[in-house]
Amino acid sequence: MLEIADIHAGYGQMTVLRGIDMQIGAGEVVALLGSNGVGKTTLNNVVCGFIRPTAGEVRWKGQRLTGLPPREIVALGIAQVPEGRRIFPNLSVAENLELGAFRRAGARKRQNFDRICAIFPRLSERLDQVAGTLSGGEQQMLAIGRGMMSEPELLILDEPSLGLSPLLVEEMFALIGRINAEGVAVLLVEQNVMQSLTVAERAYVLEQGRIAMEGPAADLLADPKLRQAYLGL
């Protein structure tokens, strides 16, 4: 469904990504793992049209995405929940959710709104609350709910467990499984290697702007090199 072919990208004279190749199939959960600063968010932003690559291309169902503006990429069925949540803190929970349907699925906004409230009952209790006053975990739920309002076929989650308590991290990964069970493909971009490989089907490990390892999640979890580098085992 998503094909990333030989992507090179960066900022000014600084190259961050050096020949990235990835694929995501319909309904898959694919993890993109790596330490801070290796280029995970840069790759997300290339896919979503915020950064234009210097070489290579991104294709969605065979259509070339490279060069399209972000609003058109959202309309095609790709939504990103960015690192740091990026909610609108001065708007209500309900208003944040409604903005998720601005470019796609607007005709089904009411149905999707009710669906998100069923997935996130805590949000349904706080619809009139100013979003900036929510807890960190609730803000992450709101950011994911806003992304889901556009009925994405691919949901990109950038560090969804960042800053959450261990209990909320468990809840967040269970939620990812629930979203995927509804047929939504997920690109899970994380530093939390163990949890990510538990929920994902396949994974890529990014190091210094290149894919260092890839394969079925269970195989990577058992790989001695990965266990030593990322799990200290």
Rank of each mutant, 00 (worst) to 15 (best):
G132C: 08
E182F: 06
S92Y: 01
R71C: 08
G84I: 05
V16W: 07
G147L: 07
P53S: 11
L99W: 01
I176L: 02
E3Q: 10
G232W: 12
N192D: 09
D6N: 15
C48V: 15
V47H: 09
L233C: 10
I176H: 00
E201A: 01
V46G: 15
E125N: 08
I176M: 10
E214C: 03
T66N: 08
A143V: 06
R108D: 13
R110M: 00
V186E: 06
L167N: 07
M148V: 11
G25L: 03
V47C: 11
I179C: 05
A143E: 11
G62T: 05
Y11M: 05
G232E: 12
I51Y: 11
L175I: 09
V29C: 04
G177P: 01
A212G: 14
A55N: 10
G37M: 12
G132Y: 00
M213W: 13
G106S: 11
E159L: 13
N36K: 09
R18P: 01
F120M: 03
A75N: 05
G56W: 13
V58D: 05
Y230C: 12
L76Q: 13
Q195R: 12
R202M: 00
V93T: 02
I144P: 01
N36Q: 13
A222I: 07
R64G: 06
A55L: 08
L43C: 11
L99D: 04
L206P: 02
E207H: 08
G27Q: 04
G67E: 10
G49V: 08
P121H: 12
R52W: 14
G49P: 14
A181W: 12
L231I: 11
Q63T: 12
R104L: 09
Y204E: 08
E95K: 00
R115C: 04
L221Y: 05
M194E: 15
P224M: 10
E214W: 07
Q129F: 08
L188D: 05
A181K: 11
G56M: 10
L175G: 03
A79Q: 11
V74M: 05
V30P: 02
Q63N: 04
L91H: 00
A79R: 09
E3G: 01
R210Y: 00
F173R: 00
L155K: 14
L97P: 02
Q228N: 07
N36W: 04
E170R: 13
G77Q: 12
I51A: 14
L168W: 04
E153I: 08
S196I: 10
G49E: 12
A174W: 09
A9Q: 03
E201M: 00
G84S: 05
P70L: 14
S35L: 07
P82T: 04
L99T: 00
A75Y: 12
R110S: 15
S150I: 14
N112K: 09
L233A: 15
E72W: 02
G106M: 06
E28L: 02
N180Y: 02
D128K: 13
D219L: 01
A185G: 14
Q139P: 08
Q80T: 09
I116T: 03
A94V: 01
G137D: 12
R146D: 00
E171P: 04
A229L: 15
R202Y: 03
L2S: 13
P82F: 08
L188R: 11
V184R: 06
M148Q: 04
N36M: 09
G106A: 10
L231R: 06
L187K: 09
T198N: 11
A218Y: 01
Q191D: 14
L68R: 11
A9H: 06
A181T: 13
Q140G: 01
L188M: 06
Y230F: 13
